[in-house]
Design a binder for these strands. Structure first.
Lengths: 187, 187
DNA sequence: ACCTGAACACCGTTCAAGT
DNA sequence: ACCTGAACACCGTTCAAGT
């Protein structure tokens, strides 16, 4: 896995070949296949090892939004370095996102007062947004009329948009004190 | 391109092979390469033809948020049918998003009162979120603790989160009447 | 101008054979 | 148990040769 990560860092996921990995390890192709059944499995292991580095900031880092945002920025940073891995992770989120991180985030949102449904929606949206950014990389800029600016601050602003939208739900839910959390009174 | 779309519909992007496409067209492999230089180029053409079907709902469809949401739902519907295309589109957004759609959305947001920067942030976030959802497909559910529910309503709720967050910026900008649009008074 | 068919340089994966 | 090296069935891409 470490060797695979080194290769991806250098030449991207597309350049990570079972043959190249075997070379990097100094073994024959068959040896690699003895330890990992398939390239897909290898990438899952790589994905897990990347996510294992991500941690949710503690309560001292701020409110729920700041903590969640911190984790997401962390994800984007780790994933963004490894060209092409984001698209794979995106298509295999459930195999790759560690249960602990997931549970911690759920807990933070629950403590903040989110109902389970809104929590799920927010987590899904965050996951998709972050993976989307990481997979989409640089060339949105022209698709969006932003030529000079750096992408990273934009990424954080987009995150804020999402988090602010969620905060609305939270406040709306509190005001009405009810089970429904939407802006609209339709049910 | 039509033949390519048929194949993707049936077996996904991974199953779209230059050989298979040639078979579908009843020609030799070389003939296909005479008309399209590369598989990448072919996929760009497919992507454009998909996006060409998406249209921004008119003013009668509601406010800016409803219209933008409509377009995004449309994108997700078209892209979602073609397995694996989302990841490609995501990585090639600028080659594939039609300038007219892009300009129309910019106009709608501008008319709604968004400054150019916030507009760009929102468009980027929407694009990434929608592509993320389309590329991520089904298996987020377990990563997010949602087992029974359909994904499509969740997709729309996530969209609402983003749009609501943007609406906040709009209102905040109006109240302060100033150039800055954030929640925070820093800067 | 447009097409054919074979070739080239890769892939992921398998597997008999070795130690 | 772990590894080698060759093979198989694919790819995308190119290109001389045909019409």
């Amino acid at each position: 896995v470490a060797a695979a990560r080194r290769i991806i860092l250098e030449v991207g996921v597309k350049g990570l070949t079972m043959r190249r990995l075997s070379d990097e390890l100094g073994v024959a192709l068959g040896a690699t296949y003895y330890h990992v059944a398939t390239r897909h499995d290898l990438l899952v292991l790589v994905g897990r090892s990347l996510f294992a580095e991500v941690e949710l900031p503690g309560a001292e880092a701020g409110d729920w939004a700041a903590r969640v945002k911190g984790a997401m920025v962390h994800v984007a940073a780790v994933v963004g370095q490894h060209d092409g891995i984001a698209a794979f992770l995106l298509a295999n989120l459930d195999e790759v996102v560690p249960k602990e991180l997931q549970q911690e985030m759920l807990d933070v949102l629950h403590e903040a007062g989110f109902d389970p449904h809104t929590t799920a929606v927010l987590m899904m949206a965050l996951l998709f947004y972050v993976s989307g950014v990481s997979a989409g990389g640089q060339d949105v800029r022209s698709a969006v009329m932003l030529h000079g600016e750096d992408l990273e601050p934009l990424f954080e602003e987009g995150l804020d948009l999402l988090l602010d939208g969620a905060r609305n739900r939270l406040n709306a839910g509190r005001r009405s004190g009810g089970r429904r959390s939407g802006w609209f009174s339709s049910d």
